[in-house]
């Protein structure tokens, strides 16, 4: 069982994505388009690391579901419950 090819390909993909994300960050793009592209790049990077480096793609579904579903649930929950509320605070204090 030799996955070393996968590891080096993953490494190259991660470096390439990082470079592209930095370039997008300094490119003259509309803020919303930049945000979408960068967040897509981030998600792909996170997926590559957890699937290939952390071997999640070789684990049983029960473990993958436990680990991924619970983390994603909390992240989405925190985002909609806390982070996004900042906008409303700003709107109500600026006036």
């Amino acid at each position: 069982m030799n996955h070393s090819r996968t590891y080096w390909l993953t490494w190259l993909a991660l470096l390439g994505l990082t470079l592209v994300m930095i370039l997008i960050g300094s490119a003259p793009l509309p803020k919303s388009a930049m945000l979408v592209l960068i967040l897509c790049g981030m998600t792909v990077k996170a997926g590559l690391i957890s699937a290939n480096f952390m071997h999640l793609r070789f684990e049983r579904l029960s473990l993958v579901a436990t680990v991924v579903a619970s983390t994603v649930f909390v992240v989405v929950f925190l985002y909609f419950l806390i982070a996004i509320d900042g906008q409303w605070v700003q709107l109500s204090t600026v006036r």
Partner: peptide, 10 residues
Amino acid sequence: AGYGFLRLAN
């Protein structure tokens, strides 16, 4: 998430 809140609120 806390950082996102503070950044959006300022």
